[in-house]
């Protein structure tokens, strides 16, 4: 946990909690549009080429997601527009049971929330604008096949959140390290008589490991 002064923490207590939500979303790696081919029989470790492909997908997706987050968070946008963005953001996740774990600066206790609930709260935030700067991504080399046929890997991210407000909350900035499960879901694509297998990258549970003052 980063080093905050107590007064700084009290001032940012509410804004921090809310900002974590923003940041978490920006970690999502989308990409129905970027399906990656993988071998059918038990991929255990991805090649460098495949990893590079997924990393590229991740970067593109994060950019897309940042746009969703900014739409959801911007006070100027209509409720309909925000709801559409939430729907698109939710589609990036493997299921509606996906959760986010959030650490609190006030205690060692962590909180786990469903992604849908957090997205819904995101639109109620009072920020005028949100800027998310993505610093680093580490994609683990292992993807392990689960009993459902999906492949599970993980990524670690470092990202800076900046929320701008013109009310008493003031501006808020933090840097957060978090881990996310990446799920490769197999799709059977039919092309005439032939069938090809492709894997689509979806997002799983998210854990925040460390948050410091940006």
């Amino acid at each position: 946990m980063g080093k905050y002064s107590k007064s700084m923490f009290l001032k940012n207590k509410i804004t921090h909690k809310v900002s974590v939500i923003f940041v978490l979303f920006s970690f999502t790696i989308v990409p129905n549009a970027f399906a990656q081919q993988m071998s059918e029989d038990g991929v255990k470790t991805l090649s460098q080429e495949q990893l590079d492909g997924f990393r590229e997908q991740a970067i593109k997706t994060i950019n897309d997601l940042e746009k969703f987050v900014q739409v959801i968070a911007n006070k100027k946008n209509s409720l309909d527009k925000k709801n559409d963005a939430i729907e698109l953001a939710l589609d990036l996740f493997i299921s509606d049971t996906t959760t986010i774990e959030i650490s609190s600066l006030s205690s060692n206790k962590t909180h786990i929330y469903p992604i849908g609930g957090y997205l819904a709260r995101l639109k109620l935030l009072p920020y005028l604008s949100v800027k998310i700067t993505w610093y680093k991504i580490y994609l683990g080399t292992q993807f392990v096949k689960g009993p459902n046929g999906y492949y599970y890997g993980s990524a670690t991210f470092l990202q800076k959140f900046e929320g701008r407000s013109n009310n008493e909350m003031g501006n808020y900035t933090d840097v957060t390290k978090r881990h996310i499960i990446i799920v490769l879901k197999k799709l059977d694509l039919l092309n005439g008589d032939s069938k090809t297998n492709k894997y689509v990258l979806k997002l799983g549970d998210i854990k925040v490991e460390e948050t410091t003052h940006g």
């Binding site: 680093k136 840097v175 410091t212």
Partner: peptide, 17 residues
């Protein structure tokens, strides 16, 4: 602090993988 996190990121052992 954010710069330290940034510097540390490459070196620290982030995952069991």
């Amino acid at each position: 602090m954010d710069s330290i996190m940034l510097q540390r990121f490459d070196f620290e052992d982030k995952q069991i993988a």
